[in-house]
Design a protein around this nucleic acid. Structure first.
Lengths: 155, 155
DNA sequence: TTTGATGTAACATGAATAGTTACATTATAA
DNA sequence: TTATAATGTAACTATTCATGTTACATCAAA
């Protein structure tokens, strides 16, 4: 699975966790069937989101719930949660350049700053997109999801 | 090779092509030994840069030369040249969500706009970094490269 | 014509990713 | 307490994709 797809799947899952009513247990099987992936992979993602403090996952006949308010969960949080590799690795620099060559010797330091700028731009953009915003967008697109009592509310 | 590493290797190569004196033929073997990769991979990158109109590569005992001024070559050009996959694929959306589910049905459209914003931020940032700027940075770090006679020894 | 290089196909290798099975663990409800 | 239904994770397999290697046709210049 590509890093990006992990991220969009996690968003998908979080939307379901956030929007489904309290009496609907959001299990990994339910999530898997909607996301279109296998339950183990979903659980791996859930596990990552849990470690990041974004959700709580109850064992036994439990289901997952948000641990923070949707406005306090950004795409950046989700991205970092489900993908251990940092942005630095995503837009990385080849590490096998010859140190004997004046070009090879300097290429890392040369690119480090510009690449850090790009990473920062990505970070800012992702951090500006909250789960709250995505829920609002979803409400516009599919109001029926929210036309039921006891929709999960946090914070 | 990761997409990012391709990009940094291409920058490395372009710097050598731009900075080495005219009488020094920049061959794929020379580039490969500095970049620390095999000549065929380097030729694949050269081929991509050529297709993108960034360099000319002479056959026979030729060597590569820039086709455009360094100020007209940006990191974005280089990135697109050496990586066929678009940014949309880099930060993509899972395509296997169930259409029967109101979440799965909307997830693509929901994420499309925010993701496009992120892509645009990356694009802008990469497009602001020119080869000219990188050459200037390199000159600051390693002035010796630009003091003519010494450079012929590279490789 | 010889030499030294590119261009690329075809195949092999290897590493990362994803999928499957299995089972221990745990909370809840009867 | 026990049965049930779910998570947590290990271990293994399969697959995919990026990379490395070999080989050779092509080409330009001396």
């Amino acid at each position: 699975m590509r890093i990006s797809v992990k991220c969009s799947e996690a968003v998908h899952m979080l939307l379901m966790i956030a929007a489904l009513p309290n009496d609907c247990r959001v299990t990994s099987d339910l999530l898997a069937s909607s996301v279109g992936n296998n339950p183990v992979e979903v659980r791996r993602l859930l596990s990552s989101l849990k470690k990041a403090g974004i959700i709580d996952v109850a064992r036994g006949p439990g289901g997952a719930t948000l641990k923070r308010a949707p406005r306090d969960i950004t795409l950046l949080d989700i991205y970092f949660a489900v993908d251990a590799t940092s942005l630095n690795e995503l837009i990385g620099i080849h590490g096998h350049a010859t140190q004997q060559c004046p070009f090879g010797k300097n290429i890392y330091q040369l690119l480090a700053e510009p690449y850090a700028q790009i990473g920062e731009a990505i970070r800012e953009e992702m951090d500006s997109i909250t789960l709250e915003y995505l829920i609002a967008r979803l409400r516009d697109m599919e109001p029926s999801i929210f036309e039921q009592p006891a929709v999960r509310e946090i914070g």
